[in-house]
Design a protein around this nucleic acid. Sequence first.
RNA 1: GCGCCCGUAGCUCAGAUGGAUAGAGCAGCGGAUUUCUAAUCCGUUGGUCGCAGGUUCAAGUCCUGCCGGGCGCGCCA
Length: 577
Amino acid sequence: MLHIFIEQRLKQVIAELLPDANLETVLVRPCPDAKFGDYQSNALMALAKERKLNPRQLATQVIGKLDVKPWCDSVEIAGAGFLNFRISAVALARTIAEAAAGKHLFIQPAEKPRVAVVDFSSPNVAKPMHVGHIRSTILGDSLARALRLLGHRVITDNHIGDWGTQFGKLLLGWKQDLDRAALEKDPIGEMERMYKKINAACDADAALYETAKQELAKLQAGDPENLAIWRQMIALSQVQFDTIYQRLGVHFDQTLGESFYNGQLKDVVRQFVEAGLARPDEGAIRIFFDDVPELKEHPAVIQKADGAATYTTTDLATLAYRLETWQPDEIIYVTDGRQQLHFKEIFTSFKRWKPAAKVKLAHVWFGSILGDDGKPFKTRSGDTVKLADLLDEAEERAFKTVSDKNPGLSEAERKEIARIVGIGAVKYADLLPNRQSDYVFSWDKMLAFNGNTAPYLLYAYTRTRGIFRKVTAAEIASMAQLPDDFVLRAPEEIALAKHLLNFGLVVQAVADDCRPNYLCNYLYDLAGHFARFYENCPVLKEVEGTERTVRLALCDLAGRVLQQGLRVLGIETTEHM
RNA sequence: GCGCCCGUAGCUCAGAUGGAUAGAGCAGCGGAUUUCUAAUCCGUUGGUCGCAGGUUCAAGUCCUGCCGGGCGCGCCA
C-alpha cells in the first residue's frame, strides 16, 4: 500500500515540472524483479518522449524534487529512465506493525466509492443449471466481492430467463405430457424431460408448433391458467437456483428476471421509434447501425412482426430501469463471449437512446470450459454436465483425499473439509485462467496439492493457523503492541512482508480490469513466500522477544490476507485439512 | 464471406498504461523429513513467444499481411 503514497508524491513533482502532463499515466507498480527494487515507475520515459526530452535528464530533475523519505531511503534512476524505489526497513516495519494492530489489512478503501450493478448467472427457468452457468456465477460473485472490499456499493442482480418463446412449448408440454409424480420428485428433471420432448415434437409437426405459439400468446395476454402454470414453473426453478447458490455461497440483492420488464417494453419501442432511432423493416422494428462497421450487417430487432419484443428490448428496458433505480456509475454484465455482438448492439443503442447517461457499461465476457478432448465439456454420454452433479463430485473426490490423508478426523469434520476444499477447488479452477481464454476442465489439476490450486492455498492457510494453536492468548495479544522500529533480517521475512503490502494493489487491479485471476496469482505467490518463510524462519523455536512476536505477526498477517483474498474469490477457509 | 478471440517449454497455462534477462505447475532428473501437520520445501533440464514485415529508446503485448484453431453472424435467449 506504500506505493500509493510514493505515487502521489511523484504526481505532485511531475505536475510541477510538466504542468500539462496527464497524471493518470504516472503509476508506481511493483518491480518485476526484486533486484531492481520494490516499486518502479516507467512513466517518465513516455513523458520525456512526448516532449522530446532526454528521459534520464528528466528523471534526474524529478528525483531532485522528489521527497519519499518517509517510505524509501533512496530513489534510483536505472536503464532508459526507470525510477526504482526501495522500501525502507522502518517503513516496512511500521506498516506491518499497523496491520498487526488491526489498523488495516494492506488495503485502502476507495477515495470515491462508486455504485456498481453486477449482472451475472442468469439461469433459465425450467432448465437445470449446468456447467455453462458456473463461470458467470463465480466470476460475477467474485467481482462483486472485490468491489465491496474496496468500499464500493454493489447491487447484484440475477436476470433470470423467465420469459420468452420457450414458454409456449413449456406450457403445451405441461398440459399434454406432465408427469405429476415425477414433478413432485424432481421438478427440474421432469420439466427438462417434458421440454425436450415437446421441442422435438414441435420441430416435426408444424401444427403442434402453432399450438405452442398460441399458448405463448395466451400467456402474454394474461390468461389465468397459463399464468398460474408459468408462476409455478418459476417457483420450482427458484428452489433449485437457491439450493445451488447456497452451496456456492453466492448471494443476489435482486432477482429481477426478464418478465419483470414486460410492462415497459412497448414504451421502449415507442421511444426508439419516436426518437428516430428505430424504424419498421419487413414487418418488424429494427435499430440500424450503418455507422458502426461491426454492426452494419446486424440491425437489431426490438419488435418482431408478431408484435412481441425481443431480448434486446428487454435488455434496454433493464438498463433504463437500473439507471433510474440505482443511479449506478457502472453496470457489469458477466456472460459468455459469444454474446459480444449482442452487447455491442445494446451498448451502442443505449448511448443513442440516453446520450446524457454517464454510466460505464462493461461486458465482462469469458471463454468456454472444455473437456480433455478440447471440445465443450460434456459427460461421457455426451450430455451437458449439471452443476449440482459437478459440485457433488468435487466434494466426493475431496472427501476421499481428506479421509486418506487425515483418517483421524471425524466423518463430520472430513465432510466439512471436503465441502470447503471441493467447492473451493471448482471455483479456483474457474477463476485462475484468464477469463477470456477457454480452459480444460481437470479434476486432477484442480484438486492437486502442488501448484496453483485451492487445496494448496487452503493448506497454506491451515499452516498459518496451526502455529496459533500452540501459542498463549497473551502472546497473541502482544502482536497488537509491536514496536514499530523492529528490523526484519531474514530474506524470507522481508520478501513475505513486502508481498503483503501489495494485497490492496492487486484487489484494485481485479476490480479495475474485472480479472480475479490477478488475485489468484497473487495469493499463490503469497503462499509460496509464506512456505519459504515457514521453512526457514522458526516462529516458536530458537527465537524470543520481539523477533518471535514479529514472526508470529507475519504468520497471522499471511493467514489473514490469504483468508481475505480467498473470501474475495468466494472461497471459504478451514482450520484443519 | 464478414466479425470477434486464440496460437508462449513435451502437457496445462500465467505474463497488471509496451519496460529491464519471458514465468509457474505437471511430467523428467537430483536433493531435504525423529516436522511449528511433508497435502511441504530446495535444486535442475526444457523457449526462433505460429510465420513474415512494420512502429518504438524498448514488442509475447501495438499495426499490416499470411498460416493454423475456436466462436459468432435467428423476427431464439
